[in-house]
C-alpha cells in the first residue's frame, strides 16, 4: 500500500534521512521506533508531503506521491495525527472534528455519517461534543485529534508520538484506541518512543537510528521471540534488539556493533 524506496531527505543543507526504505501493507500496524532525533517524525512529514525527498521514491496505492503537495496527499487518503495534537482550543470538540472533513470534498459529503462512526468509536467525544477542545484532558484531546484525522476518511493513518506528554494511564488508553482504529480497517503507521507498548500492538516494526534504518527488513515483533531486553528499552531501542533473531543487519554502524557484542556476552 505504502512503499518508501531509498529516500534521502534534507532540511536545507542538513541531511536528515539516508536511504530509508519501508513498506506498509493494507491492514497492517507498523511501528517505527528510534530515539530522539533519529528522524522518525521526518519520515512521517515526508510521507505527508511537508518535506520533499532528494532521492528515492514514495508510492501510495501504486501511485507516486513524492511530488504532490500535502493537501493533495490527504485527498488520496493519507492522514496524520500531528505531534502535540494541535487542536483548535477555542473551538468545540464537534467543530474540531468537522474541520477534519471540511476541506476534503470526498469526506465532506459524508461528514455526518463519519461523525457518527467516530462517536461510536469514542463515546466520550459525543458527551463532550459542545465543550471547548482546550478544556479537555490531554488524553481526550488526543482522541479528538485522532477523530479529526479519521474525519478525512483515510486509508492510511499516521500517528506522530501519540503518547507524548500523557500520563501512563492515558497512554494505555491511547494505544487501545489505536488498536480500535486498526480493527476498523484503517492501516496504521505509528512513530513512537514508547517502544515496549507500541511493539505490543504492532505487526512489524522498523528501527531508525541517526536517520538510517538499522535493519534492511522490518523486525519481527512476536512476543514469543522476545526481541527486547528488559531495562534499557525506553532509553535506546537499538541496543535492545537481539540481532540473532533477525539475522545480521545490513548496515550496523560502529556504535551498534559495539552494543550488540556487549549484549551477546
Amino acid at each position: 500500500m505504502l512503499e518508501l524506496k531509498w529516500i534521502d531527505v534534507y532540511y536545507g543543507n542538513i541531511q536528515a534521512l539516508w536511504d530509508v526504505s519501508l513498506s506498509v501493507k493494507e491492514g497492517e500496524v507498523i511501528v517505527i521506533v528510534g530515539s530522539n532525533g533519529a528522524g522518525k517524525s521526518t519520515i512521517l512529514r515526508t510521507i505527508s508531503g511537508m518535506n520533499k525527498i532528494k532521492k528515492g521514491s514514495i508510492e501510495f496505492g501504486g501511485q507516486r506521491i513524492d511530488l504532490l503537495r500535502a493537501d493533495e496527499i490527504v485527498r488520496l487518503g493519507v492522514s496524520m495525527v500531528p505531534e502535540g495534537r494541535e487542536l483548535f482550543p477555542r473551538l468545540s470538540v464537534r467543530e474540531n472534528l468537522e474541520l477534519g472533513a471540511a476541506y476534503i470534498d470526498r469526506a465532506y459529503s459524508r461528514r455526518t455519517e463519519t461523525l457518527q462512526w467516530i462517536y461510536s468509536l469514542f463515546p466520550i467525544l459525543h458527551e463532550r461534543g459542545s465543550q471547548l477542545a482546550g478544556t479537555l484532558s490531554g488524553g481526550e484531546q488526543q482522541m479528538v485529534a485522532i477523530g479529526r484525522a479519521l474525519m478525512s476518511r483515510p486509508r492510511l493513518l499516521m500517528f506522530d508520538e501519540p503518547s507524548l506528554g500523557l500520563a501512563p494511564l492515558m497512554v494505555d488508553e491511547v494505544f487501545k484506541t489505536v488498536t480500535k482504529v486498526s480493527q476498523e480497517g484503517v492501516t496504521i503507521l505509528l512513530v513512537e518512543q514508547n517502544v515496549r507498548q507500541s511493539l505490543k500492538m504492532a505487526h512489524r516494526a522498523y528501527v531508525l537510528e541517526n536517520g538510517r534504518m538499522v535493519t534492511k527488513q522490518s523486525i519481527d515483533v512476536d512476543p514469543e521471540k522476545c526481541i527486547l531486553c528488559g531495562e534499557c528499552v525506553e532509553i535506546c531501542p537499538v541496543s535492545a534488539i537481539d540481532m540473532t533473531v533477525n539475522g545480521q543487519p545490513e548496515n550496523p554502524g560502529r556504535d551498534l556493533g559495539r552494543r550488540v557484542s556487549r549484549k551477546s556476552q
Binding site: 505527508s48 500531528p82 474541520l99
Partner: peptide
Amino acid sequence: RLNFAFTAIRQNEDVANVMGIN
C-alpha cells in the same frame, strides 16, 4: 469555512496542510 482555513493557517501551517488546506 474560509474562516477555519484562515485560522488553521495562522495557528499552524503544517497542520492546516495535512487537513487538506493549501
